[in-house]
Amino acid sequence: MSSMSEQNRSISLRVNGVSSAYEGAPTRPLVDVLRDVLGLTGTKVGCRTGECGACTVLLDGQPVVSCLLPVAAAADRDVETVEGLRAKSHFAQLAAAMEAAGGSQCGYCTPGIMVTLSAALSADAPPQTAADVAGVLKNNLCRCTGYQSILAAALEVVRQSTDATAPQAGGETEWATK
């Protein structure tokens, strides 16, 4: 792999496992490329200053705000958006918990929160307490819910996973607790 990219050389992207070539300004924020070029409108724009987290995507598995990420910085790396994550089975578990808890009202913050929580819940050390989840969500604003239902949903997933991995409990789960 060449270390220098030439002027106007196309940028190779890998979004949700699909490769594509982007041609255009390398500094264009990834969120705009996702939404306007790739049609992945699940990623939302709330502020463009990195505060609200509505544009959260995973970059090599780690959550980042895509409004502050120049598209060139995503070259040759794995980008996952809510459209990719929702195809995974563990996403459905979180979605069910969010629905039951009332974790989405207007829904505008929701995809970003789903992406952040997905990453947190499949991390080596998933959050264990409401305070842990609140810490994970520091970069995600929600104006509607007051967060309580969202924290409850995340903890419910943790609880289900703990139950599932406990000796007597049956059933497989995608969420790792350890």
């Binding site: 459209e83 979605a95 629905e99 989405s104 829904g107 995809p111």
Partner: peptide, 14 residues
């Protein structure tokens, strides 16, 4: 709710 959670809801900007 399901479409909001899955990022399928289309707001005006979408």
């Amino acid at each position: 709710v399901a479409s909001k959670l899955r990022g399928e809801t289309r707001y005006v900007a979408d």
